[in-house]
Amino acid sequence: MNTAQDEFDATFVDGGRVLIYTRAPDVDNDPAELWFAVRGADGGYHQLRRLDARINAAGGWAMGPATDPRRPGVLLFSGKRPELSRGRSDIYEIRFDAQP
């Protein structure tokens, strides 16, 4: 799942079957977005996909995915959403289904 882009801030969901992480073409110059990958039979993570617009907003950025084991199905992340943000960065939570 590592590419020539910058990947960081990873967290596992669905018992380690899915890895959610932050990706930016160049972390110093480009907006960061959340992506996910699914663990294959070979143990590697494949099927890399960008998470949807509930997380990756046009004109914003998202990073720092986290989960709380006491709240399955909830994904927390930091970000800037132009239509919702009150500061330079806020914390958000959404329902997240790990099914690809």
Results as ranks from 00 to 15, higher is better:
89 S>Q: 14
87 G>E: 11
31 P>A: 04
17 R>L: 09
66 A>H: 07
59 G>E: 06
9 D>G: 13
37 A>K: 02
18 V>F: 02
23 R>C: 00
59 G>L: 03
89 S>P: 00
95 R>D: 08
48 L>Y: 04
9 D>V: 09
56 N>E: 06
75 L>Y: 03
59 G>R: 02
63 M>P: 02
28 D>N: 15
25 P>V: 00
44 G>E: 14
96 F>K: 06
71 R>I: 06
10 A>V: 11
56 N>S: 10
19 L>E: 04
36 F>G: 08
12 F>T: 07
89 S>E: 15
30 D>Q: 10
19 L>I: 11
2 N>I: 14
46 H>Y: 12
72 P>Q: 09
4 A>E: 14
53 A>K: 13
16 G>R: 06
62 A>P: 02
26 D>G: 04
17 R>W: 01
80 K>G: 00
66 A>D: 08
57 A>D: 02
66 A>Y: 04
63 M>I: 11
85 S>A: 12
28 D>P: 01
31 P>N: 02
81 R>S: 03
72 P>N: 07
30 D>L: 02
56 N>F: 01
46 H>N: 13
36 F>L: 13
47 Q>I: 02
96 F>E: 02
1 M>R: 14
9 D>R: 11
98 A>C: 08
91 I>N: 12
1 M>W: 11
80 K>Y: 15
44 G>I: 01
74 V>H: 00
6 D>E: 10
51 L>G: 04
79 G>T: 00
75 L>A: 01
12 F>S: 13
67 T>Y: 04
96 F>G: 05
50 R>F: 07
66 A>C: 11
80 K>E: 01
32 A>T: 09
34 L>T: 03
6 D>V: 06
31 P>H: 01
95 R>T: 07
7 E>P: 06
73 G>L: 05
26 D>V: 09
77 F>D: 03
72 P>V: 00
11 T>R: 08
69 P>W: 12
50 R>P: 08
32 A>M: 04
16 G>L: 09
84 L>C: 02
70 R>K: 10
35 W>P: 01
35 W>Q: 05
86 R>T: 10
68 D>K: 05
76 L>S: 12
